[in-house]
Computed example of a mutant assay.
Amino acid sequence: MNERLNPYNEKMEKTIRVLEGEFATIRAGRANPAVLDKITVDYYGTPTPVQAMAAISVAEARILVIQPWDKSTLKPIEKAIQASDIGINPTNDGSVIRIVFPPLTEERRKEICKQIKKQGEEAKVAIRAIRRDANEKFKALKKSSEISEDDQKDLEEATQKMTDKFCKRIDEIAAKKEKEILEI
C-alpha cells in the first residue's frame, strides 16, 4: 500500500474499532459487562468508571453482578446505573448490586436493529469523509506538483477501493450484530 494512504487507512480502522465498541455496549438481552463501560460514578469528586471501583461478573446468562471493593460505594454505583441510559433498575442487597436483563420484546429488538443500522450508516459517513479528505490532499499535492496527474488518479482509485472495503466491513459487522439481536 502506498505510504500516502496509510494515515487514511489507520483513520478508517479507528472508525471500525469505534463502531465495534459502540455495538459492544448495546444491551442485547443477555448480561454483558460492556453495557457499564460508559457509566461513571462520582467517587470523592472524581468521575470514576464502574470497572475501576468493582469486580463485575456474569452470574447467569441474564444477570450481571457488581461487587464494589469499597462497600461505601454501593449506593453511588447504584444511583449512577439508575441515572444511565441502559434502562435497567439495579437491585442492591447490601453487599453486591445485581442487574437482571429482561428478555427483549420483539418491538425492542426492532428498535435496537434500527439503532444498529443508524450507527452503521454514521460510520460509513465517517469513512466517506476520510476518503474526501484524502482526495483533497491528493489534489493539493498535484496542484503543488509533488505528484503527477496519473499518481493522483491512482491514489484516488486506491482510496475508493479502500473506502469500499471498509464500508463492506461495516455492513458485515452491523449484519452480524443485528442477527445476534434477532436470535436472542
Rank of each mutant, 00 (worst) to 15 (best):
Glu111Gln: 12
Ile97Cys: 11
Val18Ile: 14
Lys114Val: 00
Val65Met: 13
Pro47Gly: 04
Ser84Tyr: 07
Arg98Tyr: 13
Ala129Phe: 02
Ile112Gly: 01
Gln115Thr: 09
Ala129Gln: 09
Ile63Val: 15
Ala123Tyr: 06
Ile88Phe: 13
Pro68Glu: 08
Pro49Cys: 10
Glu60Asp: 15
Lys75Met: 03
Thr25Glu: 14
Lys153Leu: 12
Thr163Asp: 09
Val96Met: 12
Arg108Ala: 07
Glu78His: 02
Ala158Tyr: 09
Ala54Asp: 10
Val58Asn: 14
Ser57Asn: 15
Arg132Gln: 10
Asp37Asn: 14
Leu74Cys: 03
Ala59Pro: 12
Lys168His: 09
Asp150Asn: 14
Val100Pro: 01
Ile88Lys: 06
Glu183Gly: 04
Trp69Gln: 11
Leu36Trp: 09
Pro102Asn: 10
Asp133Pro: 01
Asp85Ile: 04
Ile116Asp: 03
Gln51Asp: 15
Ile66Gln: 14
Leu19Thr: 00
Ser95His: 13
Asn89Ile: 12
Gln67Asp: 06
Glu20Ala: 10
Ser95Pro: 01
Ile63Trp: 10
Lys153Asp: 07
Ile173Ala: 13
Glu78Trp: 06
Lys139Asn: 09
Ile97Asn: 13
Glu121Asp: 12
Asn92Arg: 11
Asn89Phe: 07
Ala61Ile: 08
Lys124Asp: 02
Ile99Asn: 06
Arg4Asp: 08
Glu172Leu: 12
Arg30Val: 10
Glu3Ser: 11
Pro103Lys: 14
Ile173His: 06
Pro7Asn: 07
Lys71Tyr: 02
Arg131Lys: 12
Lys168Glu: 14
Ile170Val: 15
Phe138Val: 08
Asp154His: 13
Pro47Ser: 10
Leu104His: 14
Lys124Cys: 05
Pro76Ser: 05
Lys143Glu: 15
Leu5Lys: 04
Gln152Ile: 03
Gln152Ser: 09
Glu22Arg: 09
Val35Ala: 03
Arg17Thr: 06
Tyr8Glu: 01
Ile56Val: 15
Gln51Ala: 14
Leu141Arg: 11
Ile56Thr: 10
Tyr44Ala: 03
Ala174Trp: 04
Leu182Ile: 05
Ala54Val: 07
Ser145His: 15
Lys71Val: 07
Tyr43Val: 12
Ile127Ala: 01
Lys114Tyr: 01
Gly45Cys: 12
Ala123Cys: 06
Val65Glu: 12
